[in-house]
């Protein structure tokens, strides 16, 4: 074999284990559940192999599934919006601050290292009936006995914002950091107020970061399983809870496949739109 041919083959040898893993543990399984979603769970147990449209008909027409899907998307959208509102100014402060930048960035990485379940359950200590807030309000005399503030849609959103905010701040920060501050100075020296300079120069240039953060918040939020279980009430189930219910509790794997694929398709459309206009490189920047 010639030296060139060997040189050309080398990267593929290095890539093959990782690509093999992704193919065998993600791509093929995804194709497999497409097939599986057309099988049928029989009443006596065991799955009937074949081409049945029953699961898809149920998933696409049943009001119950549609309402929970729409509610899940609504919760994800509200969460993303709040994350952007809270996160953007903080990211701006980190990007433009001089002395405390390193400390703020280091702190910003911390939540990524703290388990999602601990961050989620921490709110029980704050808002629970024997939590910090109730204890405070009772001792001050605002309320005479503790009130249940947990287990509703608002606390689910609160938990999601708490979980996803660092993703938003980090992505916006990365894009703000890449903007030449001279641009804003140039705008002000040409007569714009600082606010105008921000609105017309900095904000538009940071939109890719905002979009990347928004996409991550939305996709991760819409796919969440744990938060509604820990911080939501019985009626606050999100779509991933339906999937878990079908797969683990009812063992109806064909139906669970169809539900998973529906979630994947809805979120996939969003990712595809994002990829079409902004590309994946921005997302990789914020994650790395």
């Amino acid at each position: 074999m010639s030296v060139e041919a060997r040189e050309a083959r080398q990267p593929w040898i290095l890539l093959s284990p990782a690509l093999g893993a992704v193919t065998f543990l993600l791509l093929v399984p995804l194709i497999f559940i497409i097939v599986y979603s057309f099988w049928l769970r029989s009443a006596i147990g065991g799955d009937q192999v074949g081409f049945y449209l029953d699961n898809w008909q149920k998933v696409l027409t049943d009001r119950f599934y549609r309402d929970i899907l729409l509610n899940t998307l609504k919760i994800a959208a509200v969460t993303t919006f709040i994350c952007a509102l809270m996160g953007y100014p903080a990211a701006y402060f980190i990007a433009r601050s001089k002395g405390s930048k390193m400390v703020l960035l280091l702190l910003l990485m911390l939540p990524f290292w703290i388990s999602y379940i601990i961050r989620t359950m921490s709110w029980i200590n704050i808002l629970g009936t024997s939590g910090a807030l109730n204890t405070l309000l009772v001792s001050v005399g605002v309320i005479s006995e503790p009130v249940q503030m947990l287990y509703n849609e608002a606390t689910v959103i609160l938990g999601l914002v708490h979980f996803l905010l660092p993703f938003m701040v980090l992505n916006v920060y990365v894009s703000l950091e890449g903007i030449d501050t001279n641009l804003e100075d140039a705008a002000t020296s040409l007569g714009a107020t600082r606010w105008q300079a921000f609105l017309q120069v900095t904000l538009p240039l940071s939109l890719p970061g905002l979009a990347a953060g928004g996409l991550l918040c939305f996709v991760l939020g819409a796919g969440t399983y744990i938060t509604p279980v820990i911080l939501g009430g019985p009626r606050d189930a999100m779509f991933a809870n339906l999937v878990f219910e079908a797969i683990i509790t009812q063992l109806n794997w064909p139906l669970g496949s169809a539900l998973s694929l529906l979630l994947l398709m809805v979120l996939g459309v969003l990712v595809a739109i994002y990829n079409r206009y902004l590309g994946m490189s921005q997302l990789a920047k914020g994650l790395g």
């Binding site: 890539l15 990782a18 690509l19 992704v22 543990l25 993600l26 791509l27 093929v28 399984p29 995804l30 497999f32 559940i33 599986y36 996709v219 991760l220 819409a222 796919g223 399983y225 991933a240 999937v243 878990f244 797969i247 794997w253 669970g256 496949s257 998973s260 694929l261 979630l263 994947l264 979120l267 990712v271 994946m280 490189s281 990789a284 994650l287």
Partner: peptide, 25 residues
């Protein structure tokens, strides 16, 4: 670019979906 996208695909797929697909397969 395609390879990079493929390799980071596991984070782009919602974890629940990844979990179901792998379990069933």
């Amino acid at each position: 670019n395609t390879i990079t996208t493929l390799l980071i695909a596991p984070i782009l797929v919602p974890e629940v979906v990844l979990a179901v697909a792998l379990l069933l397969f």
